[in-house]
Simulated scan of single mutants.
Amino acid sequence: MEIAFFSGLLALVVFGLVCIVWAQLGGPRWVRVIAAITQGAGAMARAASKSGRSGGNGSSSSTSDD
């Protein structure tokens, strides 16, 4: 069940990205709408990711043990 869910989610993401490229090339109106929705969802995901992080400047303070 989880594989089907994530496969569907991946298909939606790929479809959105294809619509973004197609809209840049002058696609039909429905493609531009899907592209705008996809870009809006990406902007919301980035904003949620930024607000979920702790720290002020966004740089990682962890060190690597090589």
Results as ranks from 00 to 15, higher is better:
M1I: 07
V13I: 15
V31G: 00
G52L: 06
Q24H: 07
A43V: 06
G40I: 10
D65S: 15
G40Y: 11
F15W: 14
N57Q: 04
V31W: 12
G40C: 06
F6M: 07
I3A: 07
I34Y: 02
S49A: 14
S54N: 09
L10R: 11
R29L: 04
S51Q: 06
A35R: 01
A48L: 12
S7M: 08
G55D: 05
E2L: 07
A47T: 11
Q24F: 13
R29C: 01
I20C: 05
T38C: 04
T38H: 08
I37Q: 06
G27V: 02
D66V: 14
P28G: 04
G26S: 09
R46I: 14
S51F: 08
A43D: 00
S64K: 04
R46G: 06
P28F: 04
I37H: 01
G8N: 15
G42S: 06
A47G: 02
S59N: 07
Q24I: 01
G27W: 01
S60Y: 07
S51E: 06
M1T: 09
L17R: 02
Q39A: 13
M44I: 13
L10Q: 10
S61G: 13
A4F: 05
L9R: 15
F6A: 11
S49Y: 15
G56D: 14
V14D: 01
E2D: 10
A36I: 01
F5A: 15
L10N: 11
G8I: 08
T63P: 00
F15N: 09
C19T: 04
A4T: 13
R46E: 08
S61V: 12
G52N: 15
G52S: 12
I3E: 15
A48M: 15
A48Y: 12
S60T: 04
W22I: 03
D66A: 11
G16T: 09
G26T: 05
A48I: 13
V33D: 04
A48P: 01
T38S: 05
A48K: 01
V14R: 12
I37C: 10
L9M: 14
G58P: 04
S61Y: 01
V21S: 07
R46P: 00
M44W: 14
V18I: 10
D65I: 08
L9P: 07
A47V: 08
L25P: 00
G16H: 04
S51V: 11
R53G: 05
A35T: 08
E2H: 12
I3T: 11
L25E: 06
G42D: 02
N57I: 01
G42C: 12
D65T: 11
C19L: 06
S59R: 10
